[in-house]
Computed example of a mutant assay.
Amino acid sequence: MAKERSPLRRKAFKIWCDSGRTMKPSQIANKLRINPSLVRKWKSVDDWENRSNPTVGAPYGNKNALGNKGGGAPPRNKNAVTHGMYETIWADMLDPAEQIKLMQVETDPRKQVENEIRFLELRERRMLERINKINEGWDSSSVVSESALIKDDETDITVIDDNGKTTHMKITQPVFKEVARKVKTPQVLERILAIEDALTRVQDKKAKLIELLLKIDRKELDREEQLVRIEKLRADVKLINSKAW
């Protein structure tokens, strides 16, 4: 089996081609941090002068497409879907339940923000309840028992084989016995601080949504004021035209 060419060997040839076939072996060697004599050898043995420039794609002789008759995946296929976050949704590919749910989705910006605020308030309430439960001893101390394998005292037994021969022997039976008992106390302070940290992030997000809600209201108010001014201008123009006649 022929030995696979070094990636540096292919890279050296590509650098030479990219330079318009003018770069010297010493310059290529300096780029690749290798011996210049090695680049000169590659240039001579591989006959760079008579070789065509490398093409973009898989190396010559690879078998990536072996058995592939050409073409791509069928339209609307899901081959590349991993978690679905960026999945393209086609309406005609939805089942009836999904189509009904899609029609029920709230698209009004204000109502969407209000729903998100409600969810955040619910999450905030659950976090506060969890902190109260921890303070009340919900995550109280627990006893942890440690056992070890200990050999018991020797025991005399009598064994009778198939021929009726009696044999007396002593055996020791290993048993597990409790050797230590510890009281495990959870890190209450650390758990509360972790919940409070998450609670702060939830509250920050809720504050930003409330600010967004105010902007939506302000924009709607500005729009109403503009409509009022437009109606007033129309009335003024109508009054002026009536006086002109």
Rank of each mutant, 00 (worst) to 15 (best):
G70W: 15
G72E: 07
G72Y: 04
A73G: 07
A73E: 05
R76T: 04
N77E: 14
N77H: 14
N79Q: 11
N79E: 14
N79Y: 13
N79R: 11
A80N: 05
T82N: 13
H83V: 04
G84Q: 12
M85E: 13
E87Q: 13
E87A: 09
T88D: 14
M93H: 11
M93F: 07
L94Y: 02
D95Q: 14
D95K: 08
P96M: 08
P96L: 01
Q99I: 09
I100R: 12
K101D: 08
K101W: 03
L102S: 05
L102M: 10
M103L: 08
M103H: 06
Q104D: 12
V105D: 04
E106D: 12
T107S: 14
D108C: 15
D108F: 15
D108M: 12
P109S: 02
K111G: 07
K111N: 10
Q112F: 01
Q112C: 05
V113N: 00
E114D: 06
N115D: 10
N115Y: 15
I117L: 00
L120Y: 03
E121M: 11
L122T: 11
E124Y: 00
E124N: 02
R125G: 01
R126I: 05
M127G: 00
L128I: 02
E129W: 02
R130C: 09
R130A: 11
I131Y: 00
N132Q: 10
N132A: 13
N132I: 08
N132S: 06
K133M: 09
K133L: 14
K133P: 00
W138M: 06
D139V: 00
S140A: 12
S140D: 14
S142H: 10
V144N: 00
V144E: 02
E146N: 07
S147H: 04
S147K: 06
A148W: 07
L149S: 05
L149I: 11
K151V: 11
D152H: 02
T155H: 02
T155D: 05
T155K: 10
T155A: 04
D156H: 11
I157D: 14
T158E: 04
V159D: 12
I160V: 15
I160D: 11
D161I: 01
D162V: 07
G164D: 02
T167D: 08
M169Q: 11
K170M: 08
I171A: 08
I171Y: 08
I171K: 14
Q173D: 10
V175L: 14
V175R: 11
V175I: 14
V175N: 05
K177L: 08
K177M: 09
E178D: 03
E178W: 01
V179M: 03
K182M: 10
K182H: 11
V183D: 02
P186Y: 05
P186M: 09
Q187W: 15
Q187G: 10
